[in-house]
Nucleic acid binder design. Sequence first.
DNA 1: ACCTCATATTGACAGTGGCAAGATGAAGAC
DNA 2: GTCTTCATCTTGCCACTGTCAATATGAGGT
Lengths: 203, 203
Amino acid sequence: METDSPLCAVPEKPRYHHGALHDALLEAAEAELAETGLEAFSLRRVARRAGVSHAAPAHHFGDVGGLLTALAAEGFRQFIAAMTAQQARASQDPQAQIVAAGLGYIAFATERPALFRLIFSSDRPDFGAPDLAAGSTQAYEHLSRLVGARTGGEDPVDIAAVWAMAHGLADLMAAGRMHAIQHLAPADRDRAFSGIMARAIPG
Amino acid sequence: METDSPLCAVPEKPRYHHGALHDALLEAAEAELAETGLEAFSLRRVARRAGVSHAAPAHHFGDVGGLLTALAAEGFRQFIAAMTAQQARASQDPQAQIVAAGLGYIAFATERPALFRLIFSSDRPDFGAPDLAAGSTQAYEHLSRLVGARTGGEDPVDIAAVWAMAHGLADLMAAGRMHAIQHLAPADRDRAFSGIMARAIPG
DNA sequence: ACCTCATATTGACAGTGGCAAGATGAAGAC
DNA sequence: GTCTTCATCTTGCCACTGTCAATATGAGGT
């Protein structure tokens, strides 16, 4: 039977072997996470969204923890990308780069709160897994380099200060707790964040 | 029937009506939260721990959200107490009081990570409920007063800076992510935290 | 003595994650 | 070509969860 007819525009024909289930599940999982949040995350709903049986994910990710681990690894990549995106719009001045990275940190947390919580405030992913651990250390080293470019040496305390300031703003914004700043216009908000971030850096 | 005999040393006789189930459930819930964490929290396990049927909590708290709401309200009280406890050990100097409150903030997050996440990084409690909302605003006003005593006026940006710095340190410590500081001796750790907290305050 | 009603239990339901057994079909061996 | 192999996916089951309805209990007021 000639399955691939020349005008077959639908690649979604129901095949038993999906072919790209791994990526499809990751995509569905990210969408589910964004819609329902981390605490209501359901492996079976992810499977349904991907149009596959409830036990299919197990073969690719082991269990729900495995899926969340893979999702968190991807989350860290997007997290770093959010910081570098903001840095690209700022001047090369080391201080400006740190502030910009902070704005990217906050933007990621605000725009993808569930993913942010997954990578920073959840016990469900396996942070010992190679992929995820790599993303985590990569993010730390990204910040570490930025602070090093500003201070000369990479003092762990300086790094911690910058990190904590960005993370505190981001986490409180993601949780919707910074009422005083949340209601500001975007430009004023960014100005306020920049001023606050600047306090974390000595000088 | 003389139920309270003079040498009745066991108040744990199995009565149908518990009498103090509300408080007993809260206590069991807090213990469960501390042991299993927020993400594995189970209403039925709480009921079992309190020695009561699985549907008993519903009568006192409605549903699991109601129980977590009550728990979060209690958590905010303990949170504020942790800050004031540290402040009592510090000098009356406004700057020292802010730093001490930050240390209390961090201590609470480190010693009760699950409760900390419940009140700051969870969607499950109903933060619109009067008790919980009161605790939340009380905590904010506590910080607000401290910053006001230092700066004169209560600038929302100053408050946000102090709050974010304390929260960032606390949340990253609770998650076990501040490796550079986590391995420090307690005295060195507190010195580092104090130095970092001081950066959040202008001057 | 009786009644009332908040308090607690039992039993059911749909939903969840994980496991075992089987079905499917793609890729390689002959 | 046929046959075999084996990763992939499904079905069916289990224990567990939160919530609801129906029922049992007993303490306090009449």
